[in-house]
Amino acid sequence: MSSIELFAGAGGLAMGVARAGFQHTAIVEWDHNACQTIRANKSHYDSHGEDFDLYEGDAREFDLSRYKNNIELISGGPPCQPFSMGGKHKGNLDDRDMFPIAVRSINEILPKAFIFENVKGLLRKSFSDYFNYTCLQLSYPNITKKNIETWEAHLSRLVQAKEKGVQPLYKVGFKLLNSADYGVPQKRERVFIVGFRSDLSVDWEFPRATHSEDSLIYKKWVTGEYWKKHNISKAAKYDPPKRFLNRIKSQKERGMRYPNTLPWVTVRDALSGLSDPEHPSLLDPQNHVYTPGAKIYKGHTGSPWDEPSKTLKAGAHGVPGGENMLVRDDGSVRYFTVREAARLQTFPDDYFFHGAWSETMRQLGNAVPVKLAEVVASSVAEALSGKA
């Protein structure tokens, strides 16, 4: 099945889509270093050994017309800065808002399905009208905005069409997903917007979570399997959460199996096999280089070993202050290396990131975890498989 990836960044979503069985016809990204990263790892995007076009430039200038009615899936992560909790919160007033381009691509190409990803901040109350507007545009991409029309006036026309029972071109749904719930060693919440062309009559739901915090706590404090796996004997020093143990007791009394999911993947799980970057090993993969200067700030204290990491972030100049850090056993902190951050984003160890440390960390902070992308894209591929 053919696909086009817009706003590709370092390629996390694109790789997950390829792993799900889609073959990219084109990948679009404006940032030079991110494009160099994709070029250096091109084989990861060729699910069937075929080539694709990498367009390095503004997505607004990409010629979509030649792909009309010839693409199964359009995917992408429109720049998140307009809606990010850490951004300037300009939303649709930010010239980096690329959702209009996402809508235009759907209208011009008419793919069978689409997957778009963005930050949790998109669901904030202050953006609710614009988010509703975006979803309606994706549902009715053929009801286009007029040149002199405000987005509010366009929204009013779209609402009227829906209320009159006009059949949408796409059936659109969205959900806030926590990456940790799907086996990613990172607590990263992102909004996924997924649509299927209405004439296909696809019945689809977001994939169910496969991992949970409850299961991780169970493996730590009930069976002790987690500590045994990592040869850690100090677990007895920790106090297990009584709230959780009371729930376990209740479940057992009712004769129910508990838990029924896999445990969240922790930082310790993810970084297993890598040396301390301050004392590197010749066996370490590329991009595993220590960077000094990590400091704790109020509210930014780093990620503990035995939980999924906090959300990796991308500042305007790489790593924002007090972020993307590991808390050592003695309480001190250090920055994650590029390779460690890549593992937390579930990129493979042979995936090389192009650019200086700050630039590569920015690519990683903006990326979609590969594993989460694959889970969502695989469910979309399965839904489409019988709708050729």
Rank of each mutant, 00 (worst) to 15 (best):
91 G>N: 10
124 R>V: 00
133 Y>L: 12
192 F>P: 05
98 M>F: 08
155 L>Y: 13
192 F>Q: 03
117 E>R: 09
146 K>H: 13
189 E>W: 03
79 P>I: 01
152 E>K: 14
155 L>H: 14
123 L>H: 02
60 R>F: 00
140 Y>D: 02
122 L>H: 03
118 N>H: 09
70 N>G: 10
71 I>Y: 02
173 G>R: 13
92 N>W: 05
71 I>K: 01
162 K>C: 06
59 A>T: 07
115 I>P: 02
93 L>K: 14
99 F>P: 03
187 K>H: 15
126 S>D: 15
114 F>Y: 04
94 D>T: 06
98 M>G: 03
72 E>D: 13
105 S>D: 05
108 E>V: 15
131 F>E: 03
110 L>E: 08
183 G>H: 02
186 Q>C: 01
81 Q>V: 15
105 S>G: 08
110 L>Y: 00
177 L>G: 06
164 K>G: 01
190 R>Y: 03
138 L>S: 00
177 L>F: 04
173 G>L: 09
190 R>S: 05
94 D>P: 06
194 V>H: 06
120 K>D: 10
58 D>I: 08
66 R>Q: 15
101 I>W: 03
146 K>A: 14
190 R>Q: 06
170 Y>S: 03
106 I>V: 15
56 E>I: 08
75 S>E: 12
146 K>W: 06
105 S>A: 15
191 V>P: 11
115 I>E: 01
148 I>W: 10
99 F>W: 13
122 L>T: 11
63 D>K: 10
159 V>R: 12
162 K>P: 02
141 P>D: 05
70 N>Q: 14
92 N>T: 09
125 K>W: 04
72 E>V: 00
97 D>C: 15
58 D>G: 09
156 S>P: 00
56 E>H: 04
132 N>Q: 14
115 I>W: 01
164 K>W: 02
122 L>E: 01
75 S>P: 02
93 L>C: 06
143 I>H: 05
